[in-house]
């Protein structure tokens, strides 16, 4: 039956070349952990993506309960962590996953750096990868405020003070993020919007570019 459905779609959209390209491309021996145990270092990129998928899924479930306003934000986090079935697990996955994705991305970056894989012709992919790194840091920064506990509040206050000390642009950056004079209701909704819509949108676009370039250029050869 699946073959029938596949053929039906293929007749209309000619998806076979695309599927063959995704599925059949060559994966060389030197990156295969089944052949060389040390090749697990080549898995860090895939694991970063895996954790990113976990972050997106757990985040989607968190927004089912989370309320981004200063009166209810803390209470909704408290409720989903302590009252909702498996809410504690989902929040712990999102919380620890945020750290793990940084760790994995860091290891992936080091692997690419020390194997010299960023050299010609893969310069653009390295730059896109670094942009993904910055987006991830931005996601970590904005997500930190959302539980609206003291730790979140005062860390964000300090962050915005640091942003303000950037010459010329600083006060504008601060006002843009703050949405006013103080860290308050506007700040929370802005950080929520940035964390849930702006940065994930940019992240998905950059990931698509990252993967497209890997497919186009293939993996770098053995050292």
């Amino acid at each position: 039956m699946f073959k029938g459905i596949y053929n039906w779609i293929d007749e209309r959209l000619d998806i076979t070349p695309m599927w063959r390209d995704v599925a059949d491309h060559e994966v060389p021996e030197h990156v295969n952990p089944a052949h060389h145990f040390s090749a697990f270092v080549y898995c860090f990129g895939g694991l970063t993506f895996f954790i990113t998928v976990i972050q997106i899924l757990s985040g989607m479930f968190l927004t089912m309960y989370y309320v981004p306003d200063i009166i209810n934000a803390y209470a909704s986090v408290d409720y989903l962590q302590h009252k909702v079935a498996f809410g504690g697990i989902v929040r712990a996955m999102h919380h620890w996953g945020a750290s793990l994705v940084i760790v994995m991305m860091f290891l992936h970056t080091l692997r690419v750096f020390f194997t010299g894989s960023y050299k010609a012709p893969r310069e653009m992919n390295w730059v896109v990868g670094m942009l993904i790194f910055f987006i991830m840091l931005g996601l970590g920064l904005t997500g930190y405020l959302l539980p609206w506990d003291n730790k979140a509040y005062f860390a964000t206050k300090v962050t915005l003070q640091i942003a303000e000390s950037v010459p010329y642009l600083g006060p504008y950056i601060k006002e843009l993020l703050n949405g006013g004079e103080i860290v308050g209701a506007q700040t929370l909704t802005r950080f929520f919007a940035i964390h849930v819509f702006f940065l994930p949108g940019a992240l998905l676009a950059l990931l698509a570019a990252h993967f497209f370039m890997i497919r186009k250029q293939g993996i770098s050869g053995p050292l």
């Binding site: 209470a75 962590q81 712990a92 539980p147 506990d149």
Partner: peptide
């Protein structure tokens, strides 16, 4: 990762004041 999430719940302090 799942062992970590079960052993260590995500921290939550007191409401922002």
């Amino acid at each position: 990762f799942l062992v970590l999430t079960i052993a260590h719940p995500a921290p939550l302090g007191y409401p922002a004041d």
